[in-house]
């Protein structure tokens, strides 16, 4: 771990009784990075976020932000912004007062607070909403206000605890893009906790894949997807086909979109199979093909031509360099 890292977590661990939920986790990130902690529920990602925020006390290890050890500080001394899954807006305060809350408790004069609130409302695309109460707004709007509230006091670090999980699928995508755009504009270092791999891959500079209290892999979304370091990382992120043992050997797998129905320049392996099912998902066609008793999923783009039918025999083309070797870990 280099000392220049803006956010540094060293050998962090946390237990509840005999149950160790975070097992000596270390990582470091640069200023302005957007980081995701990705993993199934119970993997320790939320606990790490809550230790960074100061709501949980680690049993061991340290957290540094901007070169300073914040491990022993109270949450209200850490100068962080946090957005919660269930918005957590103060229901008795207007949108404007919610956004100004951090400034008010810091003693910022009223005029400056007003200016900052207007600036924030413009940033999140809700100008003129300052007199509304949270209950008068949709979930997506409330979460944008919660984001504005978190960044209004100019925190050193922005923590997002599954902020999109309570929203509809459509709003989820647009808000995720908006969060990323705002984060880029402000250059604020951000830690994003999610169990949704698509969210993590699409939004992050780097992703920490976690399982059972340990880091499985830390890398860019591209690395994580194309070069998974562990069996868990490979299976948790994206779909994966286990290839038939007889032809490829044990523990060989491939992504569904890397199998083609037609020859490609880099094709070096072909398989013959029978189409057993066809799933039409709009832009993508997912075929299930049975090869020597092994079911394989194949994603191809939708084309305006007649798709294969069930029972058709097809030839599958794939490249050996796309085959993943799943480690024992």
């Amino acid at each position: 771990m280099s000392d220049q890292h803006f956010l540094r977590v060293d050998n962090l661990s946390k237990s509840y009784g005999a149950n160790q939920v975070v097992k000596g986790v270390s990582f470091g990130f640069d200023k302005g990075e957007f980081i995701s902690l990705l993993g199934p529920s119970g993997c320790g990602k939320t606990t790490i976020l809550r230790m960074i925020a100061g709501f949980e006390t680690p049993n061991g290890g340290a957290i540094h932000v901007d070169g300073k050890d914040i491990t022993g500080l109270r949450p209200n001394e850490r100068k962080l912004g946090m957005v919660f899954q269930a918005y957590a807006l103060f229901p008795n305060l207007t949108v404007g007062d919610n956004i100004a809350f951090g400034l008010k408790v810091a003693g910022v004069p009223r005029e400056q607070r007003r200016a900052r609130v207007d600036e924030m409302l413009k940033l999140i695309g809700l100008p003129g909403y300052d007199k509304r109460y949270p209950y008068e707004m949709s979930g997506g709007q409330q979460q944008r206000v919660a984001l504005a509230r978190a960044i209004a006091p100019r925190p050193r670090l922005l923590l997002l605890d599954e902020p999109l999980s309570a929203l509809d699928a459509k709003i989820r995508v647009s808000l995720r893009e908006q969060i990323r755009a705002i984060q880029r504009e402000l250059g604020i270092t951000t830690v994003f906790v999610t169990h949704d791999q698509e969210e993590a891959l699409s939004i992050s500079d780097r992703v920490v894949v976690m399982n059972a209290g340990n880091i499985e892999q830390l890398g860019t979304p591209h690395d994580i997807y194309n070069r998974p370091a562990t069996r868990f990382a490979a299976t948790f992120v994206g779909h994966l086909n286990a290839l038939p043992h007889a032809t490829f050997g044990a523990d060989r797998a491939i992504r569904p979109e890397l199998i083609s129905l037609s020859p490609r320049p880099d094709t070096d392996t072909t398989l013959v199979g029978t189409v057993s099912d066809i799933g039409f998902m709009g832009s993508v066609l997912r075929l299930k093909v049975d090869v020597e008793g092994t079911p394989l999923s194949i994603d191809t783009f939708n084309a305006n031509a007649a798709p294969p039918q069930r029972g058709d025999q097809v030839t599958l083309h794939l490249a050996a360099r796309d085959v993943l070797v799943l480690g024992a870990a």
Partner: peptide
């Protein structure tokens, strides 16, 4: 209470305002 803490409020300020 957690949101008010991350925003820098003391417990007294949380009770007073929220």
């Amino acid at each position: 209470s957690e949101a008010s803490q991350t925003l820098g409020a003391t417990p007294l300020q949380f009770w007073l305002y929220v």
